Amino acid sequence: MALTVLEPEGLYPDTSVEDAVLKGGARILRGNAKSSMSELPDAMLAEADAIMTLRCPVRAEDIARAPKLKLVVRMGVGYDRVDREACAARGITVCNTPDYGTMEVAEFAVLLAMSLRRGLTLYHDTQRGSSPAPWAVMRHPVVRRQEVQTFGLLGCGRIGTAAGLRAKALGYRVVFHDPFQPNGWERALGFERVRTLDELLAQSDVLSIHAPLTRATRGLVGERELRLLPKNAVVVNTARGPILDLDALAKLLKEGHIAGAGLDVIPVEPPVEPLPELLRAYRAREDWVLGRVIVTPHIAFHSPEAWEDIRRLSVETVRDVLLEGKRSNVIPPESE
């Protein structure tokens, strides 16, 4: 079966990995789309049996331009960039690559928490100001010992599990909430499990978000939920920006209920004007965010090894599904 695989973003300099995995049995089309498949010619989409996409959304209008399309592989864990409803209507399979970048994102989540909780960002920000802070200890509620804290995982899949194991090794008590994991998951990991989100929030000195973005999780952590956290908690999000309400987070940071936040993801990426208050204050280096907020540009996954993994694993998924009839990493249409 001859396949045509479209890589709309042209992320890699050649097709050597694709050719090796597919054993030369597919033609690889490489585009140069930056933000949208509308930048690609109709002829390119018309030939595609499969699409492998990292950042380019696959929307209903893109799917309509691809009459031969059978498979969309999201080169990453989250699949919110793919219109699964439009794919389901056409019988197009949607897959992700959940086993790439696990270590990188998990380590980054714990790094964000540690950088805040041990005062790294606090001293870094205040010592380089126009009027540096005194060369001395700063007593600040963001700084605490790991061993007296609970690290709460909102989601305990591959990345959440890896983050929890790292946090546990550093001395945190680890608790998670994940209704999709089977009974007994906690015993295998040595974590504690709670049945509800509210129970998780009430005891999380660090809340680390590791859930996919779905209809059920969009806006899941808002002002009500943040107020359930213990006073001076830290919030970390390396999952998807729209899960966490940035305006509510800013409000509780200003009030002093939340001590700090580490964000690798935000609701709109890249940010556009008018900026949310938290991002505006962060860029302006306003006093109320100094040492308390870290923002990075959705790069928690990055390492040279992760880029190699995401390419190989995505092509292997194309091979498994279209050439070998397997169900590797398939996202069910009804999964919300």
Rank of each mutant, 00 (worst) to 15 (best):
K34F: 02
S36F: 00
P67Y: 11
C56I: 13
L69A: 08
M44H: 03
S35P: 00
G25Q: 14
A48P: 08
L40P: 06
R90G: 06
M37I: 05
R30C: 10
C56A: 14
S38W: 00
R81W: 01
L69R: 09
A33C: 02
R74D: 05
L111C: 13
I63K: 12
F108D: 09
V73C: 09
A26M: 08
L71P: 09
K34E: 14
G25V: 00
V105N: 11
D83K: 07
A113M: 03
E18V: 06
V110R: 11
I63H: 10
A48N: 06
D42S: 08
A43I: 01
V82C: 06
A113G: 02
N96Y: 02
I28L: 14
A26R: 08
L11E: 11
A66V: 08
V72Y: 09
R55E: 15
A48W: 10
A43K: 09
V17L: 04
P67M: 07
L45Y: 08
A33I: 07
N32E: 10
P67R: 04
V77E: 03
S16Y: 04
D14Q: 04
E104R: 04
D80L: 05
R59I: 11
A106N: 04
G76V: 01
R90E: 06
A26N: 09
K23Y: 01
A88L: 09
I92K: 02
L111P: 02
D49Q: 10
R81S: 12
D99V: 01
S35D: 08
V94Y: 02
A88T: 08
D83Q: 07
V17E: 03
E104L: 04
L29V: 14
V105S: 07
A113N: 04
E61R: 09
A46K: 14
P8N: 05
I92W: 04
E39L: 05
M44S: 03
P8D: 05
L112F: 15
T102P: 00
E85N: 11
N32R: 15
P98K: 00
A113P: 04
R74F: 03
P8G: 06
P57G: 09
L11V: 12
L22C: 14
R84V: 15
E18P: 10
G76N: 01
Y79E: 05
E85H: 11
G76E: 00
A109H: 06
P8T: 05
E9F: 12
N96F: 03
E39Y: 07
M44L: 13
E107R: 14
D19I: 07
G10I: 12
R59E: 15
A86V: 10
T97F: 00
E47D: 14
F108T: 14
G76A: 01
R74A: 12
V77K: 03
K70H: 02
I63L: 15
P57L: 06
I51N: 05
A60K: 13
G101F: 00
T93W: 00
G101I: 00
L54A: 14
L45S: 12
R74H: 03
R90F: 04
V72S: 06
L22V: 10
T97W: 01
L112V: 02
D80Y: 12
A109L: 03
R27E: 15
D49K: 11
R55Y: 15
A86W: 08
S16G: 10
D80V: 10
A33V: 05
C95V: 05
E9Q: 13
E18R: 08
F108V: 11
K70S: 13
